[in-house]
């Protein structure tokens, strides 16, 4: 298991920027390029926006836990895993889908962006309430030899 960073934030849009920085830092450390790191930060931002807006209904001050894990050789594949745990209203995964891209209207882009950027996006209801979102992005190019 790779290096982990644990963050706990309160549901407030003002807290999004620091999580973006943490994701970009984790992505760089595991070897993603700048564009990939920026895209993962965007996907995380979109996920947190959904938590604030939908799981917590826009209420400020609710807890959100984030785990950013660097996947390495011991995990079979290199990449970055981002888990987001909220304790709000559970969202039905079958209803979590982005809008049709041909439909030009504000909103509905967040889930599309998450799925476009990340290789895996899995929503899991938690028995004690809330949702755990797991998003993973893998390296799709030959591994760098980090032994030197």
């Amino acid at each position: 298991m790779g290096r982990c960073e644990n963050l706990t934030i309160l549901s407030d849009p003002a807290n999004l920027a620091k999580v973006r920085v943490a994701v970009e830092t984790g992505g760089k450390q595991v070897g993603f390029d700048q564009k990939e790191c920026a895209a993962m930060a965007l996907a995380t931002d979109e996920a947190l926006t959904n938590v604030i807006r939908h799981a917590y209904g826009g209420v400020l001050g609710k807890e959100i836990k984030i785990v950013i894990e660097q996947l390495n050789e011991a995990d079979d594949r290199q990449g970055l895993s981002i888990c987001i745990r909220d304790f709000g209203k559970a969202v039905d995964p079958s209803k979590i889908k982005g809008r049709e891209l041909s439909e030009i209207r504000p909103g509905g882009l967040g889930v599309h962006i998450m799925r476009e950027v990340m290789d895996e996006v899995v929503f899991e209801h938690q028995p004690e309430g809330g949702t755990l979102l797991r998003m993973t992005k893998y390296h799709h190019r030959p591994r760098k030899d980090c032994s030197n």
């Binding site: 965007l42 979109e46 926006t49 030009i104 209207r105 909103g107």
Partner: peptide, 14 residues
């Protein structure tokens, strides 16, 4: 910019 920014611009465009 995130999707809320894009949504703002789509709305302004419309």
């Amino acid at each position: 910019m995130d999707s809320s920014g894009v949504a703002t611009l789509v709305e302004a465009l419309q």
